[in-house]
Design a binder for these strands. Structure first.
Lengths: 275, 275
DNA sequence: GGAGCGCTGTATCGTATGTTACGTATTTTG
DNA sequence: CAAAATACGTAACATACGATACAGCGCTCC
């Protein structure tokens, strides 16, 4: 049962030629506003010609463009009347893969932040913004990309940010560079990796301050960590979700950036000029 | 402070002559839909003549009818984009760094999935699960970790998954291995990278099917993409957020895994025994 | 009660908008 | 590799839409 134009498009987008598909994608991307504008604006926004828009509309089964617009308007009107039914995608009957996954993820985030105080985040941000020491980041098999993501951002706004990648032996050798003033950010969720635990222990012995991103069951590394961020990871999937940790990471990145505002801005400008 | 046209009308309806007042009441009664229709329809619905509608619009301060309609559309668009900020969620006191960031992120996700149909995700998942071709993943400066994250998971459940890293020249050379049956997953958000665009174009020429993760303004790569996922990225931070795209990626990973259930499970067992 | 003012609708006009025809480029098929 | 089919854009076209001029009507105020 197809009830909305968006569904209709999703249903037929596969059978459309390239130009019309672009039209479809542009419409979906900012649904449904562009469809309410003129053909000329729609076509310009999609980067195709007007006739292509009209053919696209015709393929959806409409006699002409105004009829198509009326449909969009009716749909909008219906949505506005019942705020509860505002979701563009109906509750996806028959084992939809989207809704449960999204709901669980959103819950995870709320729950994660509920157990995370502003002060805690501010402390960690201050620690990361402290320019007297270096910052190292490392992650496990699936969480290493999170470490990379964070490193990529932090490296823009301050010097001495290092992502530890590659062979275990590689980063173990970097231990010699680490000291009391340095921070080590570790991402480790189930199933926890021994290599990371060993590494964390040695770093801890050298006085390195460890910030740990882990799941709600806490990696054994928590024992050595100065700060522990426990994110919810359970979702209806074969895999655990790192989304909550990802959002915490982004939040921290934002906080650190704000703290380094002055120096950071200058640094970013310099960087721009180097490109 | 008057922020919406509805308020504007309420403010001035007292000073209006009878005919225009009827127009105003009709508009308010089914706000704002009638205002998006033609002058003729509006006038008929209000039981007045077209010029009266135009005079009504002029009195509100608009130069002409299209300008009035654009204002209504902008207002609608703003409403549709931030569903939560409209009703619930008080402005979270204390100006902590956490709440606004989290709220915006949650909104982004809801909004992103609102524009994403089950069918679309299923199509992409099916494509990624198709074992006849290879899967390549690549990302931009800040989004490459997302590509890595996805690659790390997909590589576990199926063979021939490759993350393209390192020098541009490196992955450009991999083009020769790509063909019609293969899929290229690209992550590209503002500011879009030329190198990725060039790469996407060449891949497209070779018939590679491109799945694009981008922001709501659509990377130029969308032109060559078979599937486009437009995630919301705006957050109260100096950086754009990739969290929504991250969640979409996780959802896809889950969907692909489910499709490859049988073979995947066997593969995972084998892998376990190899460790 | 009459004159003036203001509001409203009818009819006309100009134009922006949707539509269509046609030629070129691109892809598909034998 | 050739030929056909399909898709796309340019440009001309028609129409429907918004804008305007003007006349009629009612209302108010002297």
């Amino acid at each position: 049962m197809i009830s909305s134009i968006a569904e209709l498009i999703a249903d037929r987008i596969g059978t459309m030629p390239a130009g019309e598909r672009r039209a479809a994608q542009t419409l979906i991307a900012s649904y449904p506003m562009i469809g309410l504008k003129t053909v000329a604006e729609f076509s310009a926004s999609a980067g195709v010609s007007s006739p292509t828009i009209l053919r696209f509309v015709a393929r959806l089964g409409f006699q002409n463009y105004p009829e198509f617009q009326s449909s969009l308007q009716d749909e909008l009107a219906a949505q506005l009347q019942s705020p509860a039914t505002r979701t563009l995608n109906p509750p996806s009957p028959g084992g939809g893969t989207v809704s449960p996954m999204l709901e669980a993820t959103l819950d995870n985030m709320r729950e994660t932040f509920r157990h995370l105080s502003d002060k805690q985040l501010a402390d960690i941000a201050a620690r990361l913004a402290d320019r007297r020491g270096k910052t190292f980041l490392i992650g496990g098999r699936f969480t290493d990309p999170l470490a990379r993501y964070m490193a990529a951002h932090l490296a823009v706004i301050q010097p001495d940010v290092f992502h530890l990648a590659g062979q275990e032996s590689m980063w173990r050798d970097r231990l010699i560079d680490m000291g009391k003033r340095d921070v080590l950010v570790i991402f480790d969720i189930r199933r926890y990796q021994d290599s990371l635990l060993r590494f964390a222990e040695k770093a801890h012995q050298r006085g390195v301050q460890i910030v740990l991103f882990t799941d709600q069951w806490l990696s054994p590394i928590a024992r050595f960590a100065r700060h522990v961020i426990a994110g919810r990871t359970a979702v209806p999937s074969a895999w655990d979700s790192s989304a909550a940790l990802f959002v915490v990471a982004e939040t921290l990145i934002g906080a650190v950036t704000r703290q380094l505002e002055a120096e950071g801005a200058k640094r970013i400008r310099e960087m721009e000029s180097l490109r």
